[in-house]
């Protein structure tokens, strides 16, 4: 209710400040929201913030029950978001596993499966069904997917280089193990 001021006077300064402040605040809020909606939060070339992934039993990383990105500095990290309810994920599951088996002996590349909003029993039967062996764990409270993207769809895969810089984003499923290999080789070559 703004027209409460004595009708003989103009608008007092405090009210003007309040009105303009409110209006500009609202506009700023919407502008920030718009900027965030229009571009993903993490872009290629950016340093990936650290996160910790709790691991499912049997899908640990060298015996560790959880793994932090910072522990993997010096290795190329492939972060794959998936869910058991996601049909396209099934299409790439075998390819990811094949690529993992190719790189596992070298130890230069680590695959991390991040299970996006899923239930554990279904996730486990999915992992068993596709014979997946690389470290996998749930995205608790969607903390990790929030780092990478705002409106996450699955599958999405992020490639991080040895110094923790995001190098490549794949939205949607891979069609062959060679496709995954090509990206990793390029990152390995660059150093």
């Amino acid at each position: 209710m703004t027209d409460t001021i004595s009708p003989k006077k103009g608008v007092p300064v405090w009210a003007q400040v309040l009105i303009w402040g409110g209006l500009l605040g609202l506009l700023a809020l919407v502008a920030i929201g718009l900027v965030r909606a229009q571009r993903p939060m993490l872009i290629v070339g950016a340093q990936v913030p650290d996160f910790t992934l709790p691991l499912y039993e049997g899908y640990d990383y060298g015996g560790a029950e959880e793994i932090a990105l910072s522990d993997l500095r010096g290795r190329v990290v492939v972060v794959n978001f998936w869910a058991s309810w996601c049909k396209p994920c099934e299409g790439e599951a075998a390819d990811l596993e094949a690529a993992w088996r190719l790189y596992q002996p070298g130890g230069e590349v680590v695959f991390l499966g991040v299970d996006y909003v899923d239930t554990e029993p279904d996730a486990r039967s999915y992992l068993a069904k596709f014979d997946i062996t690389y470290p996998n764990g749930p995205d608790m409270g969607t903390e990790i997917s929030r780092i990478f993207n705002r409106n996450l769809g699955v599958p999405e895969t992020y490639f991080i280089d040895r110094s923790g810089i995001l190098r490549y984003i794949k939205i949607g499923p891979f069609v062959s193990p060679e496709e995954i290999q090509a990206v990793i080789e390029a990152i390995l070559l660059e150093g």
Binding site: K87, P88, C89, G153
Partner: peptide, 12 residues
């Protein structure tokens, strides 16, 4: 959620 929708299709 395009991929999820595809999933829905397969599920159906």
């Amino acid at each position: 959620m395009k991929f999820a929708r595809l999933g829905l299709l397969a599920f159906l």
